[in-house]
Design a protein around this nucleic acid. Structure first.
Lengths: 133, 133, 133, 133
DNA sequence: GTGGTCTAGACCACA
DNA sequence: GTGGTCTAGACCACT
């Protein structure tokens, strides 16, 4: 599994896990329709509590990333969650803060955009292709 | 004061306050060398406890945004904090997550970059010019 | 626990506690990776408020002495904090004052160096050997 | 005047001033019997409150560094304060902490002693000779 | 049970 | 008046 948890981070474990799964989906490491490890399995692999994995799965289900089937466990949805107004507002507010912070510290618009572009490009090229790394 | 706290938010008040002050500095609402309200004053204005404001001020001091002068209280530093390796790593990791999330939801690279560019432009034009709002 | 607080001292409790923990680490009373008492536990043992202990733990975390693990609470880091320029400058300035003060009062260079050497030797011999006290 | 105050420091101004005067005496910048600027004068020069200078002078008088004459103001005593048990205890405890901190961070005994020796040498050579700098 | 957050009120040091 | 410290007690998030 590609999950790495930093137990000394300020960020809750369930949130670290959530973000890594989303990154995994974006990168194509987790393909649409793919089944995720069971709560028990993943918890053991990472060395965290089973409830923590469960919490993450449920949040991702709420967000529309996962479907949870009683028999087959969690799987990546075929259709990704949509962009609603709330998402845009949060994104805007978050970016506003990040950019303000970077701007104050002297990171130019060009540098920042280049960084974002690189990250996007890496995603687009990796899509469904992590086997060729 | 230009501070708005969302008491329903999951984000701690001191962190909301911290971010708004950073945004305020980036926008030029708070100018370099400018004195901030006293912890008591600001706490009263916002309707929160003075310790919460104090915590925010101290974090911003640690980060290099504020200086706490024994005579005049908190003020915006003349020199903004630098970009160090830790900052870049955090920024990268944060953006990686945000972009993964947006990418999954179908926001194109162009849309995302446009959004960032707009935010940057708004900052650059506002800098030192909040009088013309 | 080996902590002794002087409630009459001008030095804040959290700072006394911080120094004693650092001394404890240096002496080997607290080993790398060792778990510290919970804030509540230590606060009760010492007879101070848990927030005061919490403050000390957080400062030591910032300094790189402790890691706060979400599962196990505070523990001594495996890798000690580095010496950076800021540390050297503070050390120099502090020693400059201490030596000036001692020099004025007639403490000779030899006496002073001997004192430092003794303290160093005591640390080096105690390291990992507090069982033989 | 050779005084530099850092208004953003955590150390109280009166204590910064006190330490710099002691350093000044040790270096010979202030000679025994020499008259110090008046409280008013020094306060104005440094840009601090007159009470703050007054507090420093009084502490240094208590410590035995200064004599305060109603007519001539403060002057450096001909005889420096002695080393008493309290002084030694404080010195020891302070050094113990400083050395523990340095030791943890990997500063070797030799490095530390060299640093102290350098500071001592610089004092001894400067004694009464700052004019030849 | 752990630490994190927030509130509240007190007292003190500093300037 | 300023921030710094300490106490106290409550609630919450996380595991």
């Amino acid at each position: 599994m590609f999950i790495k948890i930093d137990f000394e981070s300020d960020m809750p474990i369930y949130e670290q896990l959530r973000r890594q799964i989303i990154k995994g989906i974006a990168k194509g490491d987790l393909e649409k329709g793919e089944q995720l490890p069971s709560v028990r399995q993943l918890a053991e692999d990472i060395g965290i509590n089973l409830h923590t994995v469960n919490k993450t799965y449920n949040i991702l289900k709420e967000e529309g990333y996962l479907a949870i089937d009683r028999r087959k466990g969690a799987m990546v949805k075929d259709i990704m969650p949509m962009v609603d107004e709330e998402y845009i507002n949060n994104l805007y507010s978050e970016l506003e803060y990040i950019i303000a912070n970077s701007y104050c510290r002297g990171i130019s618009k060009e540098e920042f955009l280049k960084l974002c572009e690189d990250i996007y490009d890496r995603l687009e090229n990796k899509q469904g292709g992590e086997k060729y790394d």
